Simulated scan of single mutants.
Amino acid sequence: MSECSHNCETCGENCSERQNPADFIEKPHELSSIKKVIGVVSGKGGVGKSLVTSLLAVLMKRREYNTAIIDADITGPSIPKAFGITGKAGGDETGIYPVRSKTGIEIMSINLLLENDTDPVVWRGPIIAGVVKQFWTDVIWNDVDFMFVDMPPGTGDVPLTVFQSIPLDGIIVVASPQELVSMVVEKAVKMAKMMNIPILGLVENMSYVQCPDCAKKINIFGESHIEQIAREFDLKVLAKLPLTPHLASICDSGVVELFEGDWMDGAADVIENLE
Results as ranks from 00 to 15, higher is better:
residue 142 N to W: 06
residue 121 V to W: 05
residue 124 R to H: 13
residue 109 S to V: 08
residue 110 I to Q: 05
residue 144 V to R: 00
residue 120 P to T: 13
residue 114 L to K: 15
residue 118 T to E: 15
residue 140 I to S: 04
residue 128 I to V: 14
residue 126 P to Q: 10
residue 114 L to N: 11
residue 131 V to P: 00
residue 124 R to P: 08
residue 108 M to P: 05
residue 142 N to I: 02
residue 125 G to Q: 08
residue 139 V to G: 05
residue 133 K to P: 02
residue 119 D to E: 15
residue 103 T to K: 11
residue 143 D to K: 09
residue 135 F to C: 10
residue 129 A to Q: 01
residue 110 I to C: 07
residue 139 V to R: 03
residue 145 D to P: 09
residue 125 G to P: 01
residue 139 V to D: 03
residue 126 P to V: 11
residue 149 V to T: 03
residue 114 L to V: 09
residue 145 D to K: 11
residue 107 I to Q: 03
residue 146 F to T: 13
residue 110 I to G: 10
residue 99 V to M: 08
residue 144 V to A: 09
residue 148 F to D: 02
residue 114 L to P: 10
residue 121 V to C: 11
residue 140 I to E: 10
residue 112 L to Q: 09
residue 118 T to I: 09
residue 116 N to G: 01
residue 125 G to T: 11
residue 147 M to S: 04
residue 102 K to I: 07
residue 118 T to S: 15
residue 139 V to W: 01
residue 144 V to Q: 03
residue 99 V to Y: 09
residue 110 I to D: 07
residue 126 P to G: 13
residue 106 E to A: 10
residue 122 V to F: 03
residue 103 T to G: 09
residue 146 F to C: 10
residue 129 A to M: 07
residue 99 V to C: 06
residue 138 D to T: 10
residue 102 K to C: 03
residue 104 G to C: 12
residue 130 G to C: 01
residue 134 Q to T: 01
residue 99 V to E: 08
residue 115 E to A: 14
residue 111 N to K: 13
residue 149 V to E: 00
residue 133 K to W: 02
residue 124 R to L: 06
residue 119 D to S: 15
residue 121 V to I: 15
residue 116 N to Y: 06
residue 119 D to N: 14
residue 126 P to D: 11
residue 120 P to C: 12
residue 110 I to F: 11
residue 99 V to A: 08
residue 143 D to P: 02
residue 115 E to R: 14
residue 103 T to H: 03
residue 151 M to I: 10
residue 145 D to S: 11
residue 101 S to N: 10
residue 116 N to D: 15
residue 114 L to T: 09
residue 102 K to Q: 15
